[in-house]
Design a binder for these strands. Structure first.
Lengths: 243, 243
DNA sequence: CGACAGTTTGAACAATCTCAAGCCGCGTGG
DNA sequence: CCACGCGGCTTGAGATTGTTCAAACTGTCG
């Protein structure tokens, strides 16, 4: 409980080395924190490196940690007992995981690429929220945004046709890439067709057919299997909404 | 901000000490507030009474208010330009609306019964959050719970069959009624078949057929069109998960 | 009692799924 | 350097679930 980070000191950034140098910070909930706040959070965090395919959260397990993604991408999903899977979301640099108010993890999480995470002990993190109102506010905003995204996805899953779903997915990824300062037009898909399918409530076959169809119609161009050019973005946008 | 500059609203009714006597408080985000905190919040609130069918939030409009439901039930939904509708959720006593971090309303909201609301000017509410950390914490918890519910619904919409969806819906309503201290077994449906359909990503016809089917199989009993007895709750529970 | 809105039932249809086979790209090893 | 094999992707044909369109029913309210 002692150390240079205790008092508000503009020069204490030096103690928060890991955080201070973090490339993910501009995209993370820790973005609005001042130097000493960052230092306090830094003390709670552990950096993890995971291999692609590693499952680091198991739905139903007691919620012991929460995470911030520093580098790489991951997916979160829910399973039914018979193996049906719904992918809830894809996570990228700056995304936060483990907002559950209470109770066990409500989703599982798996690395899609090699993945770097900040891990926090959940209890300590919650306690820190009391002392770091800026962090709490950022977390609330973030959670509200996620809720909004989830609701948009409910519309997609409940009411959109297959090609509308795929168009929405592509544009969503594109916008997200732009926000992270990555290429918004030839977009890169870090996930396979079956992940896309389980995200959109379809089968791999249907996803594949729709890609082919959109390519045939000149709305997209595929470079290999994981790079997509959005020719005619406007047409894709109206497709999202049912045109 | 609720002074003479406001547009005239025939349903709007200012209150003096509404909070102290509020029956919805144990179920609301204001539950954890102390006396003086409650008083501060009270100063920001206006009580509204709406008739069934009244739309009080329009998706896309600037977010000027947030609301707490004091009595009655409502639905929130999103529309596609061609009229397809996805009901995002049904709201009951104690539910809070308008958590959006920023931007315009992301859903529309309509009263299903006669409805009593606490309304807050959004800017003032956000400012109050800074002074009322207990409220902010409650709001964060509430938002996280809603996010979890939305994700569960994504699983339903993306991966469950029609009878699984209906079974999940009935049990969800039942659990919710229990939490509010209402009857969990003969459950009351305040919404019509087409609302249920738009919530579950089905058509009214399919919902109706599934009700009939479940009745025939002895899993439920219908009393009129809006009262359902859950005979064989266990069977319904395993149906939810795909049995 | 009659009208109307909401619900139920029926039959044909369509979107998507399932099952099955073929293809492509890529890494490995000869 | 090329053939091989493997996993993931694509394509095809038929089955299925839920939708669509249409009509009959119910019960609620003037």
């Amino acid at each position: 409980m002692s150390g240079p980070g205790m008092a508000p000191d503009p020069h204490c950034m030096a103690t928060a080395e890991a955080c201070a140098a973090c490339e993910a910070r501009p995209f993370s909930i820790c973005a609005p924190l001042s130097g000493h706040e960052l230092a306090e959070l830094d003390r709670l965090s552990t950096t993890l490196h995971l291999k692609p395919g590693a499952t680091f959260i198991h739905e139903g397990d007691p919620t012991e940690h929460c995470f911030n993604i520093t580098q790489g991408s991951a997916k979160i999903y829910k399973l039914l007992p018979d193996g049906r899977r719904q992918i809830i979301g894809f996570l990228f640099t700056g995304d936060f995981l483990g907002t559950t108010a209470t109770g066990p993890y409500s989703v599982s999480a798996e690395a899609m690429t090699s993945l770097t995470l900040c891990r926090f002990e959940r209890r300590a993190f919650k306690e820190a929220l009391v002392r770091l109102p800026n962090l709490e506010r950022a977390l609330l905003d973030r959670t509200a945004d996620e809720l909004e995204a989830a609701r948009e996805q409910m519309l997609l899953l409940g009411r959109k046709a297959a090609r509308e779903r795929v168009a929405s997915f592509l544009l969503g990824l594109s916008r997200r890439a732009a926000r992270l300062g990555r290429s918004a037009d030839p977009i890169h898909l870090p996930m396979g067709r079956s992940d896309i399918a389980d995200y959109l409530g379809l089968t791999t076959e249907t996803v594949s057919r729709v890609f082919t169809q959109l390519r045939t119609e000149g709305l997209i161009r595929l470079n290999g299997t994981s790079e997509v050019h959005l020719l005619r973005r406007t047409a894709l946008e109206s497709l999202c909404e049912g045109a």
